[in-house]
Amino acid sequence: MSLLNAVVQGIALGGLYALFATGLSLAFGVMRFVNLAHGDLAVLAAYLILSVATALGASPWVALPIVLVVGGAVGYGAQTAVLNRTLGADPMPSILVTFGLGVVIQNALLEKYSVSQQRLDIGGLVTDSVSVGSLAVGTLPLIILATAVVLLGVLELVLRHTRFGRAFRATAEDSRTAQLMGIDDRAIYGAAMAISFGTVALAGFFVGSRTSFSPLVGPALLLFGFEAVVIGGIGSLWGTLLGGVVLGVSQTVANELAIGWDLLAGHAVFLAVLLLRPNGLLGKGAA
């Protein structure tokens, strides 16, 4: 029975990973851009929410929308002002720039907030749980999972049925031809990064309220998000959710079977998918 419980916990955890992976997946899909600072941005967002909430004397829930909007704006600005300059056939500049950015963020957070663990206090929600038969699932993990599903669903609808979505898909497929239609590819990249920063800020909020966080956990989050994208299949939003769930379940089940083996098991599942199904479970493009 506890194994079933582990699976359910893993699915809920997968929602969090999917939330992380969405921004990575989107940015890679439209501009073949791997943002190595993605995890650090989530941590940065969590700290910003903490600071804003403290300054306002309000709940992190109040600070969340402020940081989401700021994050989106910063994402758009960073992409159009700096990151667009690093795009091109050679992926090296964008990798070096975002990796460097991540390291700077980690150390700036260390300098400002010290190495000690922090937590976003969102009240009783953290300890609440919903019981189904003999299973008890935390309310917060369920909210996170539902948020991920809704977010991915909305994104999918927007990409499929709106003018922006069509311009986005056209740019993802062939930016040079999209320009011929009057589509400003750099603005599309900016919008993609705005969504990416916004979703990762949301993920940061959930990480911060679910468990504690510290300045150096960003890289681990990046690796989980990246693994979710690859397991699910590059270029597939629902694949990203599936990838997150597979990763989450591997970790919780492994921990149930042998305490402390969760991370290693997650990485191993990632490697296995990479070796056996290089295009991921739902993907069509090559990695």
Binding site: R163, R166, A167, R169, A170, A178, M181, G182, I183
Partner: peptide
């Protein structure tokens, strides 16, 4: 259809 709609982007 979407290709044609993208053509009408402007």
């Amino acid at each position: 259809a979407d290709n044609l709609r993208v053509g009408a982007h402007l």
